[in-house]
Amino acid sequence: MSDKNQLGVTYMKEKNYEEAAKMFNEAIEENPNDPVAYTNFGNLLAMVGELEKAIVFFNKAIEIDGSIATAYYGAGNAFYNMEQYKDAIEMFLKSLQNNLDESDAYFMLGMSYYQEGQLPHALANLKRAVELNVDDIDAKFQYGLCLAQLEQIDEAMKVFIEVIERNENHADAYFNLGVAYAYKENAKKALHYFDRAIEVQPDHLLAGHGKKKMEELLEN
């Protein structure tokens, strides 16, 4: 990576986007065939919400070097944020084919499949994301949700409990445990977890609704 690329990345991390753009621009001018500079510029544009422009830069990087995994990954994120999930899937798959064997890539691929309603594909990729990074609470929670949607309730519950063990303030994990216990017709346990969700997040409407339903059930 040229010095200007490195400087640009440093500026980007410092949120000094103007200087970062200047550096990447100079890097491109000095070496118009540098795919890394185009990828960095794409990441910068994506960061400031210029998603369509970002994709132009990622495509340019890919044109120069068809094996640049980070450009595919960047394009995948941009497409995901534009809610173009099919395009996102294609890009994330290409990033993995080009050896970006990282938790984030599997997580984003899993989320793209999830948005497309392709739950078995989503599950496989979210599972891989969790295997590669056991500390990724987001990936773990989404994996649990996916299991629940595929009606693998016991497995989902284990995952939600792991999420709570890592983050005792995860209101949505408590809520989903409540839903799972309600599904299993254990109103008492369901109520307990809906209460915990509300303790953590008092404005959790779904948990409030669940709590009311369980209280009515227990009264009858």
Score class of each variant (00 low, 15 high):
residue 4 K to S: 03
residue 8 G to L: 02
residue 10 T to I: 10
residue 10 T to H: 10
residue 11 Y to Q: 10
residue 11 Y to G: 11
residue 12 M to G: 07
residue 13 K to V: 04
residue 17 Y to F: 14
residue 17 Y to T: 00
residue 19 E to A: 15
residue 20 A to L: 04
residue 22 K to L: 09
residue 25 N to A: 12
residue 27 A to H: 02
residue 31 N to F: 00
residue 31 N to A: 06
residue 32 P to G: 08
residue 34 D to K: 02
residue 38 Y to H: 11
residue 40 N to G: 08
residue 41 F to Q: 11
residue 42 G to H: 02
residue 44 L to S: 07
residue 45 L to D: 00
residue 46 A to D: 08
residue 48 V to R: 12
residue 49 G to C: 11
residue 50 E to M: 09
residue 51 L to E: 08
residue 56 V to F: 06
residue 58 F to P: 02
residue 62 I to P: 11
residue 64 I to K: 13
residue 66 G to S: 15
residue 68 I to P: 05
residue 71 A to Y: 00
residue 72 Y to G: 10
residue 78 A to T: 00
residue 79 F to M: 10
residue 81 N to L: 12
residue 88 A to C: 09
residue 92 F to L: 07
residue 93 L to D: 15
residue 93 L to E: 15
residue 106 Y to Q: 01
residue 108 M to C: 10
residue 110 G to V: 00
residue 110 G to S: 05
residue 112 S to F: 02
residue 115 Q to N: 15
residue 115 Q to A: 14
residue 118 Q to A: 13
residue 121 H to D: 15
residue 121 H to P: 06
residue 121 H to Y: 13
residue 122 A to V: 07
residue 123 L to G: 14
residue 127 K to F: 05
residue 130 V to N: 02
residue 130 V to T: 12
residue 132 L to D: 04
residue 133 N to F: 01
residue 135 D to K: 15
residue 136 D to F: 00
residue 137 I to Y: 05
residue 140 K to G: 02
residue 142 Q to Y: 12
residue 146 C to G: 08
residue 148 A to L: 10
residue 150 L to P: 12
residue 157 M to W: 01
residue 158 K to P: 02
residue 159 V to Q: 04
residue 160 F to I: 05
residue 160 F to E: 04
residue 165 E to P: 08
residue 168 E to I: 06
residue 169 N to H: 10
residue 170 H to P: 11
residue 171 A to T: 03
residue 172 D to Y: 15
residue 174 Y to I: 01
residue 175 F to M: 08
residue 175 F to Q: 09
residue 180 A to K: 04
residue 183 Y to W: 09
residue 187 A to F: 11
residue 187 A to Q: 13
residue 188 K to D: 12
residue 189 K to A: 14
residue 190 A to E: 07
residue 191 L to V: 04
residue 193 Y to Q: 06
residue 195 D to Q: 14
residue 197 A to D: 01
residue 200 V to W: 12
residue 205 L to R: 14
residue 206 L to N: 15
residue 209 H to M: 12
residue 210 G to K: 11
residue 210 G to I: 02
residue 211 K to R: 15
residue 212 K to W: 06
residue 213 K to D: 11
residue 214 M to F: 08
residue 215 E to T: 10
residue 216 E to L: 13
residue 218 L to F: 08
residue 220 N to Q: 12
